[in-house]
Design a protein around this nucleic acid. Structure first.
Lengths: 270, 270
DNA sequence: TCGTTTTTCGTCATTCTGACGATAAGAGCG
DNA sequence: CGCTCTTATCGTCAGAATGACGAAAAACGA
């Protein structure tokens, strides 16, 4: 059956030569767990690629927005409405990516503190966190369904790049966190070791990055650490001329539109 | 009439609940002309928004790739197959953006040296270069059709950001150019004045940016300047773990996949 | 109290940038 | 041919940021 979306003014119709494409959203949900970057994957319960691991996602429904579809699919497959930063990643062309025929896929990137996966969705086996590293190796085994390995690689690279010039690393952290927590995020996402002393200097002296809560950790081993929260967004939606991230989408950005790290925190180049 | 794209295996069909959406591509084609950033706009010849200025673009045809559709629309509306760097910008959701109903739009960004606009397309009045600046002001007049003002703003911001950490500014230049040409690109895109001496130092000493041709300009006023070309791409397609730009798409990237500016060339902040 | 661990503060050499002086190398003109 | 004008390019120097690393601070456990 063909579902044709409503056409308010039939006199101004879409040209008949235009392709009508099914559209999916796929979500690259990243988190840091045990000092390693993890991605949320589901086991596909239906063909095609039944039994294979895949990014959570599914078809956009009539009348639905893209970001809403992303959140819906995520909720359906994890049982929770995850926190974190959701932004559009990119769109993958309709050809040669789905055995069912031409399908457009709009990928979203979610950066979030680890959240529990509650229930298995309707057409997907349980969702679970998987370490990203072996999946990027792209060995002929462990292949993800569709072109999801490539989408994952793009998402990871986007996350790595954004940590350099935005305060987005805080999206991986709980509401209150220490400088060491934040450093471990950078280390996990970039796959490098950073000097704790220099990192602390950079994180605490960069304006618009951290905000102290006044409290400290206790009970752990070692000297107690100061607790911080993410600094509030620098203000206005300012999609126009000034903001550094070009992809601040009112439809995408949840609560926190993170500030810009003015002198960027660059990953070490070999 | 409904055009249903072929379904290779009917047993594995797209679920009937999925929306089938018409998809357009819109191209933000930027160039530097008379030391100012310009965008290629067409005057719409058909409803909706007949007579208004709009980004060149149109519907994706059955069996067509996104980037191919972008190049086709550009060719149809300019009469030439423009040079330059084409990359995907982002996708704009299906709702509340086209009076004809839900339409998905995948925007592309083209950075190119100025190219002549040859003929007027079928359903568009002549295409022409327009200064970007007044269009970003977003005055209630001079509004672009659809949500194209927003797409333009996103494209300009993407271009501005990319000049900081990539060698993409060379995409605005002819095959051979001087350091001053390149500086004028930065000045036009960022809307700032840069010190010619410091810019020259940065451009010529950053590895992987410029390559000297050995020749110099002649005839102009002032001391002749050395001619450079863009340094060749740093190697492999390497979409994976190492390349800085996350959006190197084999489908999008034409010849030149520009290198990374290692210490970035940051625009002056305030 | 002593060692262990982790956080946080300091120091210092190096690199990069912004400001700007000075020179180089043409064209145009008397 | 010399003078001037203009633009390109080289140099210098102070301030900022970074990377490497020493050392003190502040807990915990034995």
């Amino acid at each position: 059956m063909i579902v044709r979306m409503s056409t308010p003014d039939p006199a101004r119709a879409v040209p008949p030569s235009a392709a009508l494409l099914p559209v999916t959203v796929d979500v690259v949900a990243l988190t840091v767990r045990d000092d390693a970057l993890h991605v949320l994957l589901v086991e596909r319960g239906v063909e095609p690629f039944r039994g294979a691991l895949a990014l959570p996602g599914g078809f956009v429904l009539p009348g639905e927005r893209l970001a809403a579809a992303a959140r819906r699919e995520l909720a359906e497959e994890t049982g929770v409405r995850p926190p974190g930063h959701l932004e559009q990643l990119r769109t993958y062309g309709p050809l040669d990516r789905d055995p069912r025929g031409p399908v457009l896929s709009v990928a979203y990137l979610l950066l979030a503190p680890e959240f529990g996966v509650v229930h298995a969705g309707s057409d997907a086996g349980g969702a679970a966190w998987h370490p990203v590293e072996p999946l990027l190796g792209a060995g002929p085994d462990d292949r993800l369904a569709f072109d999801h390995a490539r989408i994952l690689a793009d998402g990871v690279e986007r996350a790595r790049a954004k940590l350099e010039y935005s305060a987005l690393a805080t999206a991986f952290c709980p509401p209150e966190f220490t400088v060491a927590d934040l450093r471990r995020v950078y280390e996990a996402v970039w796959g490098v070791r950073l000097d704790p002393r220099n990192f602390s200097r950079k994180a605490t002296t960069t304006a618009g990055f951290l905000e102290e809560t006044g409290r400290t950790t206790s009970g752990g081993t070692g000297r107690p650490a100061a607790l911080y929260r993410a600094a509030p967004a620098t203000s206005g939606t300012g999609a126009a001329a000034d903001a550094r991230p070009a992809d601040v989408d009112p439809d995408d950005a949840p609560a926190s539109v993170p500030a810009v790290l003015d002198p960027p925190l660059m990953r070490p180049r070999r």
